[in-house]
């Protein structure tokens, strides 16, 4: 269901009503896994997001293969063993920003929505800081993701290396959307 809604939202954004929408083509999402054995972090600088002001909806779409790690082995394990990027290449989030005040310089909102990762969809609430800047908005925030909530299997031998809860941070710079 969320995939259908997401596709509808993206298609609607793609083919019309550009003046009511803003886009961030190069959002940044990073995650951190802290354990006593090792710390793992990765960053994705090419995350797509669109806000539709008429409905208050926000959609986020990212390629799991676009996460960059410091070490090649971590990246291979992430894509091949845990996330299975060939089978589940994208993460999708579709949510609503309640009472988005486009005239406020700064505001904090709880964005409620559904996130689909590794073929599993869960409800999510994300505290988001929204800052008004010249020609757009910057959205920042962080939240936690439970590894087991998204049916991600970690081999018993590597369980001490991977945190059960992963910290995620994001930053999106939105600008007016010009469609085709």
């Amino acid at each position: 269901m969320i995939k259908t809604c997401f596709l509808f939202f993206i298609c609607t954004c793609y083919f019309g009503f550009s003046q009511e929408k803003m886009i961030a083509r190069q959002g940044q999402v990073s995650f951190f896994s802290y354990t006593s054995v090792e710390n793992i972090e990765a960053v994705n600088n090419q995350v797509l997001s669109i806000i539709d002001f008429s409905s208050g909806e926000i959609a986020v779409n990212m390629l799991m293969r676009a996460f960059v790690f410091k070490k090649a082995l971590m990246e291979e394990h992430f894509n091949e063993s845990y996330i299975e990027s060939d089978l589940y290449p994208k993460l999708q989030f579709l949510g609503e920003i309640p009472d988005f005040d486009t005239t406020a310089e700064a505001q904090t909102k709880i964005v409620k929505g559904q996130m689909t990762l590794h073929g599993t969809t869960n409800d999510l609430e994300i505290k988001t800081q929204i800052e008004s800047v010249e020609n757009g908005f910057v959205l920042t925030g962080n939240f936690e993701v439970g590894v087991s909530d998204y049916d991600i299997n970690v081999p018993p031998l590597l369980r001490p290396n991977i945190a059960k809860v992963i910290n995620v941070e994001f930053r999106f710079e939105f600008e007016p959307y010009e469609d085709e």
């Binding site: 993206i10 990212m62 390629l63 676009a66 994208k90």
Partner: peptide, 12 residues
């Protein structure tokens, strides 16, 4: 090449 969203994404 990492894949496609609304655009083709190339890394590194």
């Amino acid at each position: 090449c990492a894949g496609y969203l609304m655009d083709v994404i190339m890394l590194n």
